[in-house]
Design a protein around this nucleic acid. Structure first.
Length: 423
RNA sequence: GGAGAGAUGGCAGAGUGGUCGAUUGCGGCGGUCUUGAAAACCGUUGAGGUGUAACAGCCUCCGGGGGUUCGAAUCCCUCUCUCUCCGCCA
């Protein structure tokens, strides 16, 4: 959520910058400023009246104590009148506040000035491409066929038990998953992230805090009986750890990580994209989150990108970093880098990580601040990134590493799998 | 699922109608003392809004919402959440 003070003082900038996200904010901003003006006027009037009421109540108290009942009664008449007016003002004020809130949550975050214009994925800026994209052998198989050939993943059984998008991993496939999770968590801890095990269901306030609600309602699985949501990413519980918090400057930066299953309805997805492991309703992911002082957030964003690409290098996969254009940027993000790995047989780049700086957009929603040296409470910046999402990584590993002898396991993973080839 | 208790400032924990934004303790910050530290002692110590060049000032906030009253943390209604015991269960 953008800050009202900022919008008030920079309305033109807000409108201009949101154009990069292909968002026309003209009307909303205009309305916000109108409502804000009314809100403040009403607030002032109410405050003045309340101040007067307080004074009078105190006087009445004194008069009663000294036995001057008649005088007290006279003042009472006036306060009764004030009370009526104040009730009305209070009502109005609440209305303006709600109206303002409703408008504010519709505004996406302002993109960083370096974010390129663009409409879709195709306009993203490829920053760097590392590693050779392998040419598959003639009889090379796509990952879903490899998975079944080596008995690693059973999509059919997943269908039977739950439905499409809920694969069942087994034997060395299951072990490979577990190995990747442990590997990622160990690396994160090594890099200074604190490990958490988080709830997989969150309440409405948490889903709202990180921006899933109201924007992405319908993309989350919802349990109406208890009004809880299955998390689409551990970002939600991890970030909400810090909801309504004022941190000390010396606590920063905060770095945390969690492995979790993630649940996404993926409403509207269909066709080729959902084949095999490409797009699932349930998948595993290790997430990293940082809470940092505003002046450091872009430096930290770069660090996180480097951290993630190092992991991919250790898995010996070719990857590509791209900077999202305005049109592809998420609602809450100011800047995002996507990391894709190359999947040889599908001959496709698969997104395995998305690393974003939200600046103070999330922090403003969840009221996450720190006390600076002057004793002022300042909104912090939040960042998060996948490190990493498993299924597409596994797709790439399976497709890129098939040899006549079997499937080669990346060297860095062998200590975790206990085997270096799947035959 | 049944029965009961509770929700107060960073934490603990008082407060049952009149300067209570709130006693006190701990923690934090500043100071005295000390070569330094600890202890002791003294002082200070929430958030939001409005407003200001910045202060000041004013208003709101004792889980959320509503009500009674000139006046509510304190009384009433309602919602949510937490805890304890019993039942069931990994």
């Amino acid at each position: 959520m953008l800050q009202i003070n900022f919008i008030r003082d920079n309305s033109k900038t807000v409108i201009d910058k949101l154009k990069v996200k292909n968002f026309d904010a003209t009307n909303i901003v205009e309305k916000i400023i109108e409502v804000d003006t009314k809100r403040r006027e009403t607030q002032k009037r109410l405050d003045n009246n309340l101040s007067e009421s307080n004074d009078l109540a105190r006087q009445i108290g004194q008069l009663f104590k000294t036995g001057k009942k008649d005088e007290a009664e006279k003042i009472k008449e006036h306060t009764t009148e004030l009370k009526k007016i104040n009730k009305e003002l209070h009502h109005q004020l609440e209305q303006y506040k709600n109206e303002q809130e409703q408008l504010l949550i519709q505004l996406p975050n302002i993109p960083h000035e370096s974010v390129p214009r663009g409409d879709s994925e195709d306009d993203n800026l490829v920053i760097n491409e590392v590693g050779k994209t392998p040419k598959p052998e003639e009889n090379a198989l796509p990952h879903w066929e490899i998975a079944s050939k080596y008995n690693l993943i059973d999509f059919e059984l997943g269908n039977k038990i739950t439905g499409a998008g809920f694969p069942l991993y087994k034997e060395k496939g299951a072990k490979l998953q577990r190995a990747l999770i442990s590997f990622f968590i160990d690396k994160a801890i090594e890099a200074g992230y604190i490990e958490y095990q988080i709830p997989l269901l969150v309440n409405e306030a948490s889903a709202f805090g990180t921006g899933q609600l109201p924007d992405k309602d319908g993309q989350m699985y919802h349990i109406p009986l208890d009004n809880l949501y299955l998390i689409p990413t551990s970002e939600v519980p991890l970030t909400n750890i810090f909801r309504d918090t004022i941190l000390n400057e010396e606590d920063l930066p905060i770095k945390c990580t969690a492995y979790s299953a993630c649940f996404r309805r993926e409403a509207g997805s269909y066709g080729k994209d959902v084949r095999g492991l490409n797009r699932l309703h349930q998948f595993d992911k290790v997430e990293i989150v940082q809470v940092v002082k505003p002046e450091n957030s872009y430096k930290v964003l770069d660090e996180m990108v480097n951290y993630v690409t190092e992991l991919i290098s250790l898995l010996e996969l070719p990857y590509r970093i791209s900077k999202l254009c305005g049109g592809d940027l998420g609602f809450a993000a100011a800047m995002t880098y996507d990391i894709n790995v190359f999947s040889a047989v599908q001959n496709k780049w698969l997104e395995v990580s998305s690393i974003s700086n939200f600046e103070d957009f999330q922090a403003n929603r969840i009221k996450l601040r720190f006390k600076n040296s002057h004793g002022k409470n300042i909104l912090l910046h939040t960042l998060n990134g996948s490190a990493l999402a498993l299924p597409r990584l596994i797709a790439a590993i399976l497709e890129n590493n098939q040899t006549i002898k079997g499937l080669k396991i990346p060297r860095a993973l062998v200590p975790y799998t206990g085997f270096d080839i799947i035959k």
